[in-house]
Every structure is written in C-alpha cells, then in structure tokens.
Simulated scan of single mutants.
Amino acid sequence: MIIDAAGRLFLAPGSGRVSMDDLARELGMSKKTIYRSFPDKYSLMTAVLDRQFEAIERRLVAAAQDTQDRPFGERMQGFLLAACGELWRIGAAQLAAGRGDAVLRRHVEQRIDAVVYQRLDELFRDGHRRGLLSAPPALLGEIIRGAVERLLNSPLPRQLEWTAADLLRATVDTMLYGAIRPGSEQVEPATTRVSERKDAS
C-alpha cells in the first residue's frame, strides 16, 4: 500500500518535490508508521523504482515472445516500442536526467541499463551474427540509446502531435531502412564512399 501510494505521488507527470508528509497525508497514516517499513525516503523510492522496472522487464519479455518468429526488424520494433512506452510511463528518463538526488539517478541509470539496454545489445549482436546487420552492434546500440533518452525528454512529441513511441518507430525505421524513399534518388552508401577513399589513399 505504501509503495503504491508513493509511486502515484513520486512518479506522477509534472509532480514537484513530494515530501514524506505528503505521502503520510495521502495514506492517512503517520510518518512514523511509514518509517517502520522504510527507514528513509531513498529506500522507499528504490522500492518504487524496482517495482516499476520489474513491470518493464515483464513487458519486454512478453514483447520478445510475441515477436520471436517475426523478421528481425519487427522484433526490434516490438522490443523498442515496449521499452519506450514503459519508460515514458514512469518518467524514467526525467528521473535519470535530473529529478531526485544523485544516488537515485544512478539507480535509475543502472536499472535502465540492466533491464533495457543489455537486452537491446544482445538483440543487435544476434542480428549481426545472423548476417542481418552491416553496422557494428555497439554502434547501433549507442544510436538507439541516444534516441530513446532524447525522445523521452524532448518537446518534439508534443510539437508533432506524435507519441514518443511513434517517433521511436520512425527512428528505428530510419536507422534500419534509411531515410530516403526507395527509387526517389540513387545515393551511394556512405560506407562505400569511405572504403573507396581508403583504397585511393
């Protein structure tokens, strides 16, 4: 009950600094009662975040199972859209970028890395092993990390009237399939031009 109420207050969009007094009022109990279960605000927030990341983990496992027999691009989209939707819901990027104290920010960053990015890296490595990706998995992982963290903090979804998940889908499509529409123009891949410059030198 305490964790549920703390999650509603602490992770609410646009919520400012929430005190233990606020939580006690919400629960209709004394702070002393709360402190019997959680010795400080940090331990309570850690419990709230851990519960949220357990839910994210379950969602990502379910998304992976739903798309396991699909083409690689669909598997990648399913994973990233599930991850982005869940991280958006709990405001994890905002927590990692500035809400809360430094210890909690590190905790959020570590949990995002363990729950989301390590799975993402394995997915890219699998695609690379199967000959489906020409770019190094580490590079693709860095690009997606940057896109996810930027989109979750960006005003762009509101400006374009898209969801963060819609923008991430467009980002993944652009990264995996290119931004130029097929047949619109014949453009030589940058990797080919780089290799030719190396050969010439």
Rank of each mutant, 00 (worst) to 15 (best):
M76L: 15
A47I: 07
T67M: 10
L87C: 08
H107S: 10
P155E: 00
R106L: 14
V148H: 01
R150I: 00
R145W: 02
L120T: 00
L133A: 08
G85A: 08
P157G: 04
P136Y: 09
Q52T: 10
R130H: 13
L156I: 04
D66R: 15
L133S: 08
Q52W: 15
A63W: 13
R150Y: 02
A55M: 14
I112P: 01
P137W: 11
R158C: 03
L132M: 11
L140S: 11
E122H: 10
R51N: 06
I90K: 02
I144S: 02
A114N: 07
R129F: 07
S154H: 00
P155Q: 00
W88Q: 13
D66V: 15
I144F: 03
L87K: 05
Q68R: 15
Q118T: 15
R51C: 13
A114T: 11
L95K: 02
E122D: 09
R75L: 10
I90N: 00
L123R: 05
R99G: 05
G141D: 02
C84F: 11
A147N: 01
L156M: 04
I90D: 00
R58W: 14
R106C: 09
E142I: 05
S134V: 10
I143Y: 03
E122C: 07
R59I: 08
I90C: 07
D69M: 14
V103G: 10
D121G: 15
V61W: 08
G100C: 12
E74F: 07
L81V: 13
C84P: 01
V61T: 14
R51K: 15
R130L: 10
A47F: 11
L139N: 04
P157Q: 00
R75N: 09
D113I: 09
Q110I: 02
I144Y: 01
V148C: 00
F124Q: 03
P71Q: 09
E142Y: 08
R89L: 08
C84I: 15
V148A: 02
A83D: 02
R145A: 03
A135R: 14
A64F: 04
L120F: 03
G131N: 04
P71V: 10
P155T: 00
Q110W: 05
T67A: 12
L123C: 06
I56A: 13
P157Y: 00
A64N: 11
L133I: 10
L151R: 00
L49N: 01
Q77G: 07
D69F: 15
L120A: 11
A96K: 04
D113W: 08
A83C: 09
S154L: 03
Q94E: 11
G85T: 13
I56M: 03
W88H: 12
I144G: 01
D126Q: 09
L133K: 05
P136D: 06
A138C: 06
L133H: 04
L87V: 12
G141E: 01
A55T: 14
A97H: 09
L95C: 04
R99H: 10
G85D: 05
S134G: 15
A138M: 06
